[in-house]
């Protein structure tokens, strides 16, 4: 683009010059930025209705209703925190997050190491192609597959019944529900989760292995002293992100199965908001829960990042 005026001799050109130069870029960014402002940041700010007795019928649209609705201080939070169902859903959420952190999170790491050890490229590509696939299925499909396999009329129940056995009640048993959702999650995303670890494994300097093997380190020592340290930055990064997301444990998965196993086992924070706020139009309460979740998540991610820095890791954002 030809410049109408020679730029200032030193430093950056002035605002007007930059505007004249860069306005096409701004125009191009605008649609996406406006979408984010309208559907991401406006709802974020809108969470102040947590301090209101928000009623949709008061105005013609959400903003008008917001202006008309009375401010009630912390009443919604008081209601939320005195609701035993809220605490139950929070407990379920944290329990599932903790359980999956131990029994889900490490699986892709092991699987990636296993895949990395396959020497035939074709075999490896084949296995990867198959186990990545369920990532592209919707939760409705994933749950459908589990129902068809393990449900009351599913394949395993049929097979067991035809052999005179009583099939266990897997899909509707609230006591084993945490195992079921973890199994579903693993089936869907365990393969996909290996990608980032495989990339990290490929980036490890192979001469390290050779040198340590020459020094007499066996395969387990190499795994412990070379492979795992090589994966550490990625593991820490994903752990931080997972921690920041500690209060979400998959949403559709729970909405789909909540009624089958009962809310005592399957109510998580998100489904609580859905059933106790949106479905009954108690929006102020739902915003209070959303605000609680957002703030806790944000604080957790900051803490985790800080801890990562302490441990000498890079974390998600630089120290600066």
């Amino acid at each position: 683009m030809s410049r109408p005026r020679p730029p200032a001799p030193r430093g950056r050109p002035g605002f007007a010059a930059r505007l004249r130069r860069d306005w096409p870029l701004l125009v191009m960014t605008a649609p996406a930025a406006l979408l984010l402002i309208l559907f991401h940041y406006l709802p974020t700010l809108g969470n102040v209705i947590a301090f209101q007795d928000y009623q949709s019928y008061l105005g013609d649209n959400a903003v008008d209703s917001f202006v008309q609705s009375p401010w009630i201080g912390f009443t919604n939070f008081a209601e939320l925190f005195s609701d035993p169902l809220f605490w139950a859903s929070l407990r379920n959420t944290l329990f599932l997050t903790g359980f999956q952190l131990v029994f889900f999170f490490p699986v892709p790491i092991f699987l990636a190491i296993l895949l990395n050890g396959i020497l035939r490229p074709k075999l490896r590509t084949f296995i990867q192609s198959v186990i990545y696939l369920p990532h592209f299925f919707s939760w409705v499909l994933v749950v459908t597959f589990f129902v068809q396999m393990f449900g009351g009329a599913g394949l395993f129940a049929q097979t067991m019944q035809s052999h005179g056995l009583t099939p266990p009640d897997v899909m509707t048993n609230p006591h084993t529900f945490f195992l079921l959702v973890t199994a579903e999650g693993l089936w869907k995303d365990m393969g996909w989760g290996t990608i980032v670890f495989l990339a990290a494994l490929a980036a490890i300097d192979q001469s390290l292995y050779e040198a340590s093997a020459a020094d007499g380190a066996g395969r387990w020592r190499r795994l412990w002293h070379i492979t795992l340290p090589g994966l550490r930055p990625v593991i820490v990064l994903l752990l931080i992100l997972r921690l920041g997301d500690a209060l979400s444990v998959g949403f559709e998965q729970f909405i789909l199965q909540r009624d089958a196993v009962g809310f005592q086992a399957a109510e998580v924070l998100d489904t609580y908001v859905f059933y106790h706020a949106i479905a009954v139009t108690d929006y102020g309460l739902g915003a209070a829960a959303g605000l609680f979740k957002g703030i806790v998540g944000f604080v957790l991610i900051l803490i985790a990042n800080k801890v990562a820095h302490r441990l000498g890791e890079q974390g998600i954002f630089a120290k600066s």
Partner: peptide
């Protein structure tokens, strides 16, 4: 990093 919340997005 920022979670907008289910309710307010629904309202918008």
């Amino acid at each position: 990093l920022i979670y907008p919340g289910l309710v307010t997005k629904y309202l918008v």
